[in-house]
Amino acid sequence: MFLKEYFGSIFSSIKSLLTGMKLTGYYFTHHNKIITEEYPDNRAALKMPERFRGEVIMPHDEKNEHQCTGCQSCELSCPNGSIKIITKQEIQPDGKKKKRIDTWVYHLDMCTMCGMCVEACPTTAILMGNEFEHSQYEKKYLKKVLNKPGSRLKDGVE
């Protein structure tokens, strides 16, 4: 009885070990199953999903116009204080003074890509971009101004 158990355990263990080796042996000979992606080489073919949150961007149209009214909802909704909006008073053609953005400061180094600022923006002036290669040698390069120089608010956006 003891011997039967003893040898039974030996055989069952050898069998389980061989099943494992069969599997690794199978993958050793089937190179088409390899899942590695060679990242910097496949840059051209690499397509991030549309919704991927990589950074906050502010799209400008061909007339260098954006849609940010400077309402600061995004600044309020950001949990980390990564957004700082500096506004100025601009004199409109009709003579009235209006609040416009001066600089839209974005601290990429503090951003956690939560996307809450985009949710909060009433005019969809900002979006989440797909860029993810953000590494820099110094922290100061991560502080960005999102509104382009000379840009202005698109007409009709309030």
Partner: peptide, 27 residues
Amino acid sequence: NSIMEETCGARLTQNFMVPGGIITDLQ
């Protein structure tokens, strides 16, 4: 994780569920 990335925009820190429901519709 790829599904998470396509649907929620991030792989781990998805931040998809908000009070009242979910943040965006499915892709």
